[in-house]
Design a protein around this nucleic acid. Structure first.
Length: 332
DNA sequence: GAACTATGCGGAA
DNA sequence: TCCGCCTAGTTCA
């Protein structure tokens, strides 16, 4: 479920809380026992997100590659330093970053999908989390340490004070530097990685040379990294673009607008933790839309409901084995 | 307690 | 194009 913005948020959490520290690694579920044994005791050196994949570099040229797939998620627990570039646990829309003292005494045991405590598939973190700018022991707080294992934890990474539990990834493997580079080389441009100009040109070239319909191209991770089913539907609506238009038939300027829109949406998503795609609504319209978690988008998940712009019923269509939502009138 | 669903993707057919 | 994988929340009986 997590699209690109989630993975960048996760990478920032790792950067802030794990990089530069020695890792304890284990696979409570057992399915990554060998890999965990290799990681155990190594220092985390760097972390990088590209599209929907995260790469954690550890000592000795051992890279951990994680792809969350449909249901994967990371749950963070213990002392968590807040990355100042991403919104906080309570991250209400419109609020910018909360940091430091704001969160010093916050203890969450019911963190939602957009919190820093659980990033990935929409589900609730089930461990106690204490967010702090300072490093304090947890003993006084009466919280269990280390936190108990709950559910199917493929990989647990720990420092002395922070835990990250990985559940349900579609990929969790160790790679050599060469393998890691080969994986990245297959991915299309990510707005947050590499040169902005070159990224846009790569995207434009990839789209404009293909007969494949734009709805499929936007989901193709070799064309552009990080876009998933929600952003795809929303971006097409925002440009009022017919999903069935072949890539080569989309005017170049429109392709560039699509790219720039992805740049913007990803930045908003990383900062807020939400797939905010109606950023041009008035504050009142936005509050109304946000009131329901299932109704915060232009077209995604709105099959049969009236288009917010023209009132026409939103169409649900299967394409590439995924659900595509669009307005047949606005996107004619 | 079963059935269904999900923001994904690789491989077999 | 279809199937399988992976996990957990929600919905329905």
């Amino acid at each position: 479920m997590p699209e690109g913005h989630s993975v960048h948020r996760i990478a920032r959490q790792f950067d802030r809380n794990f990089v530069g520290k020695a890792l304890r690694a284990s696979s409570p579920q057992g399915r990554f026992a060998e890999g965990a044994a290799v990681l155990d005791g190594r220092e985390a050196v760097s972390v990088q997100a590209v599209g929907k994949q995260m790469f954690l570099e550890t000592e000795g040229d051992v890279w951990l590659r994680v792809h969350l797939g449909l249901y994967g998620a990371w749950d963070f627990a213990g002392e968590i330093l807040i990355d100042p570039t991403i919104a906080s646990a309570n991250g209400r829309m419109g609020q910018t970053n909360q940091r430091g003292t704001d969160l010093d005494d916050v203890i969450l045991d019911d963190a939602g999908e957009n919190s820093l405590a659980s990033i990935g598939a929409p589900r609730r973190a089930r461990v106690h989390v204490r967010m702090s700018e300072q490093t304090k022991g947890l003993a006084d707080e009466g919280l269990e340490w280390p936190p108990p294992i709950v559910g199917q934890v493929r990989l647990r990474l720990m420092t002395d004070i922070t835990v990250a539990d990985l559940r349900g990834p579609t990929a969790c493997v160790l790679q050599t530097p060469e393998e890691m580079l080969a994986t990245v080389a297959k991915l299309g441009p990510d707005p947050l990685v590499g040169d902005p100009i070159e990224n846009e040109e790569r995207f434009v070239r990839a789209v404009r040379k293909k007969q494949t319909v734009i709805a499929l191209l936007l989901m193709d991770q070799s064309v552009v990294s990080g876009i998933g089913n929600v952003y795809r539907a929303e971006m097409l609506f925002r440009r009022r673009l017919n999903p069935h238009t072949p890539g080569r038939d989309v005017p170049e300027e429109i392709v560039r607008e699509l790219w720039r829109d992805w740049v913007r949406l990803l930045a908003i998503g990383v900062e807020t933790g939400q797939m905010m795609t109606m950023d041009d609504l008035s504050a009142e319209q936005y509050r109304a839309a946000m009131a329901s978690r299932d109704d915060r988008h232009w077209v995604y998940h709105r099959a049969g409901l009236p288009c917010r712009v023209c009132g026409t019923e939103i169409v649900l269509e299967e394409i590439g084995a995924r659900k595509l939502y669009w307005c047949p009138r606005c996107q004619a």
